[in-house]
Amino acid sequence: CHSECLGNCSQPDDPTKCVACRNFYLDGRCVETCPPPYYHFQDWRCVNFSFCQDLHHKCKNSRRQGCHQYVIHNNKCIPECPSGYTMNSSNLLCTPCLGPCPKVCHLLEGEKTIDSVTSAQELRGCTVINGSLIINIRGGNNLAAELEANLGLIEEISGYLKIRRSYALVSLSFFRKLRLIRGETLEIGNYSFYALDNQNLRQLWDWSKHNLTITQGKLFFHYNPKLCLSEIHKMEEVSGTKGRQERNDIALKTNGDQASCENELLKFSYIRTSFDKILLRWEPYWPPDFRDLLGFMLFYKEAPYQNVTEFDGQDACGSNSWTVVDIDPPLRSNDPKSQNHPGWLMRGLKPWTQYAIFVKTLVTFSDERRTYGAKSDIIYVQTDATNPSVPLDPISVSNSSSQIILKWKPPSDPNGNITHYLVFWERQAEDSELFELDYCLKGLKLPSRTWSPPFESEDSQKHNQSEYEDSAGECCSCPKTDSQILKELEESSFRKTFEDYLHNVVFVPRKT
């Protein structure tokens, strides 16, 4: 048989008469490798580009789960590009990614509803959504962080984005990388972005840091009482949809009607710091009717980097990364020049730590249904340095008659930039024990000054392991946590139920 035959053949030295091919099969003959313009397919066939392209389009058009959109890589027609490569849609070739590779997620039936953290986790790592997304989240724990972890990498949506009755959302900033909504599939009414009845939605994105392009379709905003109209108009300008909307697409009466839409800028007039305090004062603000001013709200939190936005980490279910302080308005003076500047002394802060701070007014709604208010920009203030805590785990070892090696770990709280350490030492008198000992005694162990690591005695271990207080009263049991108490109650309830079950099964009433 021919060298490319495997198993047997019907005619000697003829690659077209093989029972099976050793390498690849091409047009009725066995070959060692697939010549151009053919590609290896499933490690035994040679196919042309049209064959591989037909497989790709067949799966793409069917949208069946589990099928493969075949691509070409290293002269092979394979189910998908290997790690580190992405497909070129024009020629199906796998090309190296520039940075992290995109991950295209194809949605069944063309859309997916995100109504819980669990459903959001199914899209973790996706960068391109081939379909439409509907966000409908009523509640949950730590929602802002969970949504950002699972949806934060999405850069492109081919269909539309719909935010509907998501009472738990305060902001859409968890879509931190969303840059493009194509609108290839539109919501009824030709809408590519749809926001309806979101009672706590206050911000779409921080438009000073976020760009969003909507290729096709219109915007729809109705019944978002805490979303200011200025935020919607800003989205029109940034996304390129200005002029597409009709009169009733953006409701003037049901958007922002319960919001404090600040239209003035508060400026800080005085800032002073110490290692654990920050004193702030800002310019006074009074609405047209000074009785509408209820006070100020001061927001602050630790910020290692200057990239904080107002609604980071917030949701309507209680999660809030900001510390909020309510401040009463100052006494009002008739003389504008003698107006008191409101302020606040922030206490209990960490030394040498940068804080993000902003302040906003708290006002009631005027009778004319106009909203007044003022808010400052987010500023960054760093507390002063102070003395560091003591170095940890000092170790001293003498390696000769004239040297001592000293080692330690950095302090747990540096409280500033540590530039150097101060080492103090003092000579001590020799131990009298060394002169009084009889060095001729056998088995004498000389006193040693070398360091030995501390260890816990058996008594201390027994005390720590004991669940009861000892007789001397030195140790006591740790208080039980809520989960331990709940577990004990469940076990007790189970024992009672099981005992009742045994009584009912074992003891049967005697027939009379």
Rank of each mutant, 00 (worst) to 15 (best):
H106F: 02
L107K: 04
L107T: 13
L107H: 15
L108Y: 08
I114P: 00
D115I: 06
D115T: 13
S116P: 01
T118Q: 01
T118A: 02
S119Y: 07
L123N: 00
G125S: 11
G125I: 15
T127V: 03
V128S: 10
N130W: 05
G131W: 00
S132T: 10
S132P: 01
L133C: 01
I134C: 14
G139K: 14
G140I: 08
G140H: 08
N141M: 09
N141P: 08
L143V: 12
A145W: 05
A145S: 08
L147N: 03
A149Y: 06
A149D: 09
L153V: 13
L153H: 04
L153M: 10
I154L: 12
E156Q: 04
I157V: 05
I157Y: 00
S158E: 07
L161K: 00
I163Q: 00
I163K: 04
Y167N: 11
L169Y: 10
L169G: 04
S171M: 03
S171L: 01
L172H: 01
S173N: 12
F174C: 14
R179D: 05
L180Q: 08
I181F: 00
G183S: 03
G183H: 01
T185N: 07
L186Q: 10
E187Y: 03
E187V: 06
N190A: 09
N190S: 12
F193Q: 00
Y194T: 11
Y194N: 13
L196V: 15
Q199M: 11
Q199N: 11
Q199D: 15
L201Q: 01
R202F: 09
L204D: 00
W205V: 05
W205Q: 02
D206G: 09
W207H: 08
H210V: 07
H210N: 03
N211R: 10
T213I: 13
I214F: 15
I214S: 05
T215H: 13
T215K: 04
G217E: 01
F220L: 09
H222Q: 02
N224Q: 07
N224W: 01
N224A: 02
K226D: 05
E231N: 04
H233C: 06
K234R: 10
K234C: 10
E236N: 14
S239H: 08
G240Y: 13
G243T: 08
G243S: 07
E246C: 03
E246R: 08
N248E: 15
D249P: 10
I250K: 02
I250D: 14
K253F: 09
N255C: 14
Q258C: 14
Q258A: 06
Q258S: 12
S260N: 02
E262C: 13
N263K: 09
N263Y: 10
E264C: 06
E264P: 14
L266M: 05
K267V: 11
F268N: 00
F268Y: 03
Y270L: 01
Y270R: 02
I271Y: 06
I271A: 04
R272W: 01
T273S: 08
T273R: 06
S274F: 12
K277R: 15
K277L: 09
L279Q: 03
R281L: 07
R281K: 06
R281Y: 02
Y285W: 14
Y285F: 13
W286R: 09
P287Q: 12
P287K: 03
P288K: 03
F290A: 03
R291N: 13
R291T: 11
L293W: 12
F296L: 10
M297S: 09
M297F: 01
L298C: 07
A303D: 02
P304M: 15
P304N: 14
Q306N: 05
N307A: 09
E310F: 10
F311W: 15
Q314R: 15
D315L: 09
C317D: 02
C317L: 04
C317M: 04
G318Q: 09
S319Y: 13
W322Y: 14
W322K: 00
W322Q: 03
I327C: 01
P329V: 07
P329A: 11
P329F: 09
P329T: 09
P330E: 15
L331T: 13
R332Y: 02
N334Y: 09
S338N: 09
H341A: 11
P342Y: 12
P342Q: 06
P342F: 06
G343V: 11
W344K: 09
L345F: 13
L345Q: 09
M346I: 12
R347H: 15
R347W: 12
L349P: 01
L349R: 02
L349T: 03
L349Y: 00
K350V: 07
P351Q: 04
W352C: 04
W352K: 14
T353M: 03
T353V: 05
T353H: 15
Q354G: 09
Q354C: 15
Y355Q: 00
I357V: 10
T361W: 08
T361D: 02
T361H: 07
L362R: 02
L362Q: 03
L362S: 15
T364S: 15
D367V: 06
E368V: 15
R370P: 10
T371K: 04
A374W: 14
K375L: 15
S376I: 01
I378R: 08
Y380S: 04
Q382P: 04
A385R: 12
A385S: 08
T386Y: 13
P388W: 01
V397Q: 15
V397S: 08
S398I: 15
S400E: 15
S402F: 11
Q403M: 12
Q403F: 04
L406G: 00
L406V: 12
W408M: 02
W408V: 04
W408S: 01
P410S: 14
